[in-house]
Amino acid sequence: KGRRGQKGKNRGCVLTEIHLNVTDLDLGYETKEELIFRYCSGSCDASETTYDKILKNLTKKKKLVNDKVRQQACCRPTAYDDDLSFLDDNLVYHILKKHSAKKCGCV
């Protein structure tokens, strides 16, 4: 429990999972229930598009100085896992939606 998934340095964007207590999420719930939390991690170097190149070049030339632009894709969930439900210490049910990743992508 609490063991981190493998996190290779030069691996692309992948789905990783970790076994947690619901309270570890710090969402304010009091319960003893647990979950598998899946998240996206890894670099998106390999997925550079012409758009990304142009942004880099324009930033270098200081043509975009006033804008906050991201020059690289981010490794983010492209789909979420099924809902999670649990009973709290006061016998009230709660449901978490879109709390855990199902698929990852460089977006």
Partner: peptide, 27 residues
């Protein structure tokens, strides 16, 4: 609180949420 100690029913709920099918049909 009412559920402060561990018990078999709690263990079963934990096991359910760690199983994709049970978790899905439970919620």
């Amino acid at each position: 609180t009412a559920l402060s100690k561990g018990n078999n029913c709690l263990d079963a709920a934990k096991a359910c949420n760690l199983n994709d099918t049970c978790k899905k049909f439970r919620s």
